[in-house]
Design a binder for these strands. Sequence first.
DNA 1: GTCGCTGCTGGTAGCGCTGTCAACGATCCT
DNA 2: AGGATCGTTGACAGCGCTACCAGCAGCGAC
Lengths: 365, 365
Amino acid sequence: MGRKRTKSGKIRLAEVAELAGVSPITASRFFRNPEALSVAKRTRVESAARELGYVPNLAARALASQRTEVIGVLIPSLTNNVFSDVLRGIYDASEGSRYSIQLSNTRYSILQEEKLLRLFLAQKPAGLIVTGIDQTTESRAMLEAADCPIVQIMEIGPNPVDMMIGFSHYDAARAAIAHLFAQGHRRIGFVGARMDPRVQRRLDGYAAAMKDAGLFDQRLIVTTATPTSVTLGGALFADLIAREPDIDAVFCANDDLALGVLFECRRREIPVPDQIAIVGFNDLEFMASSVPTLTSVRTNRYEMGSTAAAMLIEAIEGKRPEKPVLDLGFTVIERQSSQAQRPTASPRAGEWAPAVQNDSVTNDP
Amino acid sequence: MGRKRTKSGKIRLAEVAELAGVSPITASRFFRNPEALSVAKRTRVESAARELGYVPNLAARALASQRTEVIGVLIPSLTNNVFSDVLRGIYDASEGSRYSIQLSNTRYSILQEEKLLRLFLAQKPAGLIVTGIDQTTESRAMLEAADCPIVQIMEIGPNPVDMMIGFSHYDAARAAIAHLFAQGHRRIGFVGARMDPRVQRRLDGYAAAMKDAGLFDQRLIVTTATPTSVTLGGALFADLIAREPDIDAVFCANDDLALGVLFECRRREIPVPDQIAIVGFNDLEFMASSVPTLTSVRTNRYEMGSTAAAMLIEAIEGKRPEKPVLDLGFTVIERQSSQAQRPTASPRAGEWAPAVQNDSVTNDP
DNA sequence: GTCGCTGCTGGTAGCGCTGTCAACGATCCT
DNA sequence: AGGATCGTTGACAGCGCTACCAGCAGCGAC
């Protein structure tokens, strides 16, 4: 016997079709490919749908069509400011499209990432955005076997699974160190936390630049697996300066650490940049208004997210980009914290201004 | 005639049932309510599912059961640190449950919120988390008509739609001002940005406290609709101090603004807290390690998210909480930036320590 | 006139799962 | 012992939509 399900008063496609005087399948086509209809039927279906307030049932559509309109996004952290900018880009670019975002947090664990990937793939997503290029072998195999477009974000490297968008953390770190060299600094410390693959590559870039200049010294490097924070930046710098009092600059793997270093310098009355220069990474908003203003490597986080989502959607709809790997570059934004010459006095109100980007070293491939 | 759809090699429930030697409906029950099966069949289905690597088709489930396992979340901003903490709580609490999170960004627009709400509700979510208590009349009506549990987060107020979890921004602001009064401050400025409803209520709390003390002065208030930032904090404070040079404290509607004020003071060589005391709101991590450390009102953002999601899931599964409205309270964390007496000298390295919470004014209902 | 093509439309048959109800044996109570 | 109750299981019929063809009209080419 049949069920007694309440028909729930919901408008179905069949109702719309009836009101429009067409078959259900024609009405269905209207929502997926309006161009295939004659103008007359198109307008009839459109007004019928509006009149009834029809909303398609996505579950039924997914079941019948054997595919979903979901874009899976895997990022390592919800807390890190870097990812909130990327996410904003992704959400903005997906808005207005038919695709919805399914977000999951890997917490910087590639095993967790593998687990989530398995979960996502089982639901046949329309596309996937994953962070970075360091997946487990198993994850990599799943990604390559997946029958949907995939974008790797945050960095670029060899052997993309499919598409890729990011920049070279290695080169960015080298550019930051080159800037410090140009300002006359020689004993440059490195402060890093979390040490995820991208931070590791910044460290590699730092080390390579220092080695090339014959200035590399393992003792200049302080890192920890602890998640990053401003407080941690201060603590790591305290370790560093206690051990190596003669350092003249610090390159921080991110801006939170840099701010922590700045505060620690202030606490110890170490003049910045006169005794110690500071360079951060990411160019978060506050870097431009601290005292002194802080030099940083600007990265195009929002664009990374929005472009990744846009590329993915294009690819889902069959228009693969001509260049599947996109380098968004970076810019060293030079500010007071790394100037060779400190201005005569601490600037008075009104005299300071954010760094002019024209003065900066840009890598925009 | 039938279709030639590629059966896609996917394992279906029927296959699992066949291997386990039970009917499909019994296998189905195993995944939804294992307790209803006898132990023998339960283990048989379990091993069959594992052997075949079965993954349920959520679209089919949603279609057949007329409901989804999706929790809709509407927040006003993806950038604001406050919401990233809340979100992390929501995602953490939903992990391991059968529910997945569908996130959307209202961008502080209640019209956008209404639009998104309509979209969400059309897909019959299992539950809904919405930010704040200021919905449009239309949104309010839709929420009340929705046949799923709903949690309003970030603040508490009268007439909850369903459940509610947050704290009183009004009371929190009053507590911050009371603390400044206790430290001897009288001409206390207010700096606010964005001026969303919650910031507005903080302003109301400030104004009420000042009026009660006979100290209210409209000229002490500087606000803007511009989104908040550290830089903006400095700029707003610059306006305020230019107009009212005799202020002795500033209450900032959030910590970014407070940091901006601190930097601006440093830029102008205004001693903090000797000439100007500073109090922020939210107690972001950096407040404890700035120089001087910054007083702030701690809010339980992660708990707000995780508890909201946990309550919602309980409610979806039929266990409504005994108390549908939960006040998570706040704590005024007293730090150097609002101390009545500045320590004799600027503290030396190692001598500073984060404020002890025991010294603080807690409102923990 | 016939053929093939193009553009539009419709019929049929599911997609994979679950709500509803009925049936069955086992257990419990009087 | 008889009836009521409980726990467990299965049959059936869809949920609302779309893939796959088939059909049909209109048109130009031969």
